[in-house]
Amino acid sequence: MKTLNLIALLLFIAASVAVFMLDTPTTRTVQSKVMAIFAPFMHASATVENTTSRAIAEDIDPKELLRETEALRLKVQKLTILSQRHDELLEENNKLRNMIGYRERSPFKDLIACRVIKRSAATWWSTLIIDKGSADGVAPDRAVLTDVGLVGKTGKVSPHVSEVILLTDELCRVAAVIDGTREKGILSGERGSLENTPDLRLRFLSRNAPIAPGTNVISSGDGGVFPSGLLLGRVKLFENKDISGEALVETAVDFTKLEDVFVVGSSATPP
């Protein structure tokens, strides 16, 4: 081997070892900085993608559009009234909680509204990119939800964009409980499930647990990342494994139609 090649190889090995030695906070900082560099390109690619999909989309009948607008307007009015009523109830609830000495309030007070920019181009991970980052109060390992249920948790965060690890990814694990029972388990996606909305696995349940298909699965709040009471999905099938029970769970959120999500802010304390 030539001397120059040998020196290059040694330098390569030394640099690789140095990278392997980096601790998690340092690598997270590096990832955050790299995400910040890529952020304008992510926004630009999302714009291109949207423009292209609009250009190739079918023409919509203006009458149909008008009907839809009217229906949506009515819906907005109805929801505004409901929202006002909800706010009043929330306020009353908080007052009552304070009165009886509850320390924490609703964990969903501090929600950061985010728009989904695009799906990430990773090899084996199910992730997506949202348009808010650390500058907006988003931090790593925060629950991401919609009005329907849990979407996932935040991963890499840069000042203006963040990555969300979806509930369907094997890395996003949620402590869950079967609604109406004391059956607790860990819900996660399955490796290699590459469709947009694959089913999830709820593991470590009791064998022969009386779990009927269609029962809701909600977060239990254990583990600290995800607040309790979030709808995760519905049981499709329960089966006994070697030493525990396992349920196949259909996700509550339709991941193919995700446009807006909420990130639970840093000031919200999970119950």
Binding site: T24, R28, Q31, M35, T123, D222, G223
Partner: peptide
């Protein structure tokens, strides 16, 4: 830096 997922040890889980 762009794609790797760094997941901290989840002792509680």
């Amino acid at each position: 830096a762009r794609y790797a997922q760094l997941i901290a040890e989840d002792k509680a889980m």
